[in-house]
C-alpha cells in the first residue's frame, strides 16, 4: 500500500493505462477517427445537428446493449432483447391506438403510462428469461435464443407481420423533442439508464455480487449469495433496458413491427464484446460499452459523409475493428500471462 501512495505521476498514469488498456484503446480509436473526419469532412460532420442526430439514433440499440452487458457480466448472454423490444413496442402501439381520439390526440397521462407499462412488460419478459436460466438451468444462449424467437413469434401472431401505426403522432413528436432545444429525449433516456446501471454496478452491493457470480457460480453459492435471485434480477434489468429501447424505436419509426431491428441482436453482442466485457463473465465496465456504442455510431455517421463509399462498408470496418482489438488483446495480455505460466 505504501507503493500506491508514493507512486510517481508517470507510474500512476502507466498503471491507469495498464488497468484499462482496453478502454484507452477505444478512446484512441475514437480520437483518431475524429481527427481523420476533421481533416477530411470537417464541416459536414462537426455540426450541432449532426451530433444531435447521432445522439437520437444510438439509444435504441445502446439501451439493448446495456442489458446484454449485464447478462454477459454474469457469464450469460441475452439474445432476446430485440424480441422484447418489439413485443413491448407493439403492445404499447396498440394501447396508444386505443387512447388516440378522433382528432388524433392522446391524453396527457398517456406517455408516462405507456413508459411505466413498457418497463413492467420488459421486466416480466426478463424475469421469464431469468427463470429459464436459473431455475431450469438452460444455458443462457439457448434459453434467450428460444425466448427471443417466442417473443418475435407472438409479435408476428399479433400483427400478422404488418406494421402497427396509426396512433397519435404526439408520441413520436414528444420523444423526438429536444430538451432546451439541444438534447434529444432519446439521449436523456439512455443517459438515465446508463447512470443507473453504472451506479448499480460500481456503487451497490448488487454490482459486486454480479461480478462475483460471473467469476464463479460455485464460489458464489458457497459464499451464501442468492444466485438464482441475482440472475433473475439481471435478466429483468436487461428486459427493462430492451423495453425502453423498443419504446425509442416506436418513436423513431413512428410505428411498431415484428421485424424491426433484427440486426440488433448480434450487433449488441458485438458492441458489448468490443466494449471489453468478457463473454466468460466476471469482467466488464459500462464505460467501455458506452465508448463502443459511441465509436460505432461515429464510424457509421462519419462514413456516410463520404457519398462515394458505400455505407455498407460499415459492417466490414466494424467486424474488422472487433477482430483487430481482440488480436491486440491477445498479444498484449496473453504474452505476460504466458510468461508467468512458464515461470511457475
Amino acid at each position: 500500500m505504501m507503493e500506491r501512495n508514493t507512486m510517481q505521476p508517470l507510474a500512476r498514469f502507466e498503471k491507469l493505462y495498464s488497468n484499462d488498456r482496453h478502454l484507452w484503446r477505444l478512446i484512441f480509436l475514437i480520437i483518431v477517427w475524429m481527427i481523420f473526419i476533421a481533416i477530411t469532412r470537417f464541416s459536414r460532420f462537426y455540426s450541432l445537428l449532426n451530433f444531435q442526430t447521432m445522439a437520437a439514433q444510438f439509444p435504441e440499440f445502446g439501451l439493448m446493449s446495456l442489458g446484454v452487458m449485464l447478462c454477459m457480466i454474469t457469464g450469460g448472454i441475452d439474445l432476446s432483447v430485440v424480441g422484447i423490444a418489439n413485443l413491448t413496442s407493439i403492445l404499447m402501439a396498440y394501447l396508444l391506438i386505443q387512447m388516440t381520439n378522433a382528432s388524433g390526440m392522446i391524453p396527457a397521462y398517456a406517455i408516462p403510462l405507456v413508459f411505466v407499462l413498457a418497463v413492467g412488460i420488459g421486466a416480466a419478459l426478463g424475469i421469464f428469461n431469468g427463470i429459464l436460466v436459473s431455475k431450469f438451468h438452460i444455458p443462457p444462449i439457448l434459453a434467450t435464443m428460444g425466448s427471443g424467437e417466442l417473443f418475435t413469434g407472438i409479435c408476428l401472431a399479433l400483427t400478422k407481420g404488418n406494421a402497427v401505426s396509426k396512433f397519435s403522432r404526439t408520441y413520436a413528436r414528444t420523444i423526438n423533442n429536444r430538451i432546451f432545444d439541444l438534447i434529444p429525449v432519446q439521449l436523456v433516456i439512455f443517459i438515465v439508464m446508463a447512470i443507473l446501471i453504472w451506479f448499480l454496478l460500481s456503487r451497490t452491493v448488487f454490482g459486486t455480487k454480479l461480478y462475483m457470480l460471473g467469476t464463479s457460480a460455485t464460489a458464489a453459492k458457497f459464499s451464501g449469495l442468492k444466485t438464482d435471485r441475482l440472475l433473475i434480477k439481471t435478466y429483468m434489468l436487461s428486459g427493462v433496458c430492451a423495453a425502453l429501447g423498443g419504446m425509442i424505436m416506436l418513436a423513431n419509426y413512428n410505428s411498431a413491427r415484428a421485424d424491426y431491428g433484427t440486426v440488433y441482436t448480434l450487433q449488441c453482442v458485438l458492441i458489448v464484446v468490443l466494449g471489453g466485457v468478457n463473454p466468460v463473465g466476471g469482467k466488464g465496465k459500462i464505460s467501455g460499452v458506452v465508448l463502443a456504442i459511441i465509436l460505432l455510431r461515429m464510424l457509421e455517421t462519419g462514413l456516410n459523409r463520404f457519398p462515394t463509399i458505400s455505407s455498407y462498408y460499415i459492417s466490414l470496418i466494424w467486424g474488422g475493428v472487433l477482430i483487430l482489438i481482440m488480436v491486440l488483446n491477445y498479444f498484449t495480455e496473453n504474452t505476460p500471462r504466458f510468461r508467468k505460466k512458464i515461470a511457475r
Binding site: 459486486t208 461480478y211 462475483m212 467469476t215 464463479s216 460455485t218 464460489a219 458464489a220 458457497f222 466476471g282 469482467k283
Partner: peptide, 12 residues
Amino acid sequence: SEGLFLSQSIAD
C-alpha cells in the same frame, strides 16, 4: 473452485 473468486480482487 468453491472458496475463491480467483480473478477478482483480494478485497472483494
